[in-house]
């Protein structure tokens, strides 16, 4: 049980961005802020909050910015869908070429 919590904690802190040293995740960082945040994550896990509840807790305090894994909402439709769109359009172009060539 304890080991599971540790894994979950690492997973969560890897997904939180440190506000002090802004290129790092909380997991990677050793700033004062990151260290306290790790304790908070620990406490929240022990309180029985789920991973997503913990994310939304931090998101309500610090904004979307703190999450490394962007949520899928109206701000990020393009972020998530554009690469997939490019993939399918690319596929369609290639497929189309082949059809033409076959004739």
């Amino acid at each position: 049980m304890k080991a599971d919590n540790e894994v979950l904690k690492n997973k969560i802190t890897k997904n939180l961005r440190c506000l002090i040293c802004q290129g790092q995740s909380v997991y990677d960082s050793d700033s004062e802020f990151a260290n306290s945040l790790k304790i908070v994550v620990d406490n929240k896990i022990n309180e029985g909050l789920s991973e997503n509840q913990i994310y939304s807790y931090f998101q309500s305090k610090y904004g979307d910015w703190i999450l490394y894994d962007p949520l899928f909402n109206k701000n990020t439709y393009f972020l998530w869908l554009l690469p997939l769109l490019i993939f399918f359009v690319g596929g369609a172009i290639i497929f189309n070429k082949f059809l033409k060539k076959q004739k």
Partner: peptide
């Protein structure tokens, strides 16, 4: 002393 309360307030420093 652990800095956890400050986080409840959305503070970071």
């Amino acid at each position: 002393n652990k800095g956890t309360n400050a986080i409840e307030w959305g503070a970071y420093g």
